[in-house]
């Protein structure tokens, strides 16, 4: 019996994963959603996905005009809706991170991770936040305490800037075999990361990492994904919201 979770289907699925743009935007979206700080903007990918969305829209329109089978049209429509959701949600999560950490982002090298439009948005958000705080609080405080970024003139660095908490726990999934990896600076925890394989999920390739280390692997080695897994390892794999998406 070959069920939907047979090894063959599994293999096909993993071959497909990481090859289509929808798969890639899904991964980008998941990483963005689970990462505490803003990640590199996937510019070329977003462009390609938008082209595909346009193509799908044309297909839906054509099929409707041709009087094609309603079921076929609605399947196209559903596929379109899901891709659109991924794209919108991806951009939205990024904007919401910017809203939260705009000053921190503009002051650090996170700035280079933004798209041109996001940079404009960040600048504008900072201006209007500054205007609000300036007019309501800062202008009414005594001399020496009027800074937007510093508590007072005696502060040596900007100590009033909200920053994302990076030292938090994140879920990670190995995309490839990483081998023995030292998680802790003290060297107490060494984890052997094996390649991503859905059948193996119950064994050892889902890890709870401290954010800072997890980020290190995600960025330096490009081997790990942030994930939003829910459920116990060994349970049927559950992607929470992503299970809505068509492959």
């Amino acid at each position: 019996m070959s069920g939907p979770w047979s090894e063959e289907a599994e293999e096909d699925a993993s071959l497909l994963a990481g090859t289509t743009d929808v798969e890639l935007i899904k991964r980008a979206w998941r990483n963005e959603k689970a990462a505490p700080e803003i990640l590199q903007f996937e510019g070329p990918l977003v462009l390609r996905v938008r082209e595909q969305i346009q193509l799908l829209e044309e297909t839906v329109e054509e099929s409707t005009e041709n009087g094609s089978n309603d079921l076929v049209v609605s399947l196209y429509q559903m596929d379109l809706d899901r891709t659109l959701f991924l794209l919108r949600s991806y951009l939205r999560i990024r904007l919401q991170k910017i809203e939260k950490y705009m000053i921190h982002i503009s002051k650090t090298n996170l700035w280079n991770r933004l798209s041109e439009q996001e940079k404009k948005f960040t600048k504008r958000c900072t201006e209007i936040m500054e205007k609000l705080l300036e007019q309501s609080v800062l202008a009414r405080l005594p001399y020496g305490y009027k800074s937007f970024l510093k508590q007072s003139i005696s502060s040596e660095e900007d100590d009033m800037v909200p920053e994302p908490q990076l030292d938090t726990f994140v879920f990670c999934k190995a995309k490839d075999a990483v081998g023995a990896f030292q998680l802790d600076d003290s060297g107490d925890e060494i984890v052997d990361l094996v390649a991503d394989d859905l059948l193996n999920i119950g064994q050892s390739n889902l890890h709870l990492l401290r954010g800072a280390k997890g980020r290190g692997i995600v960025h330096c080695k490009h081997l790990l994904d942030y994930g939003v897994f829910v459920g116990v390892p060994g349970d049927n794999l559950n992607y929470s919201e992503t299970s809505y998406c068509l492959n």
């Binding site: 429509q77 559903m78 809706d81 899901r82 959701f85 794209l87 919108r88 951009l91 439009q117 919201e241």
Partner: peptide, 15 residues
Amino acid sequence: MDLDLTVDMVPPKDP
């Protein structure tokens, strides 16, 4: 961006 981001707040199940 020529894209409305205020719709599609939850993952679509049905069109």
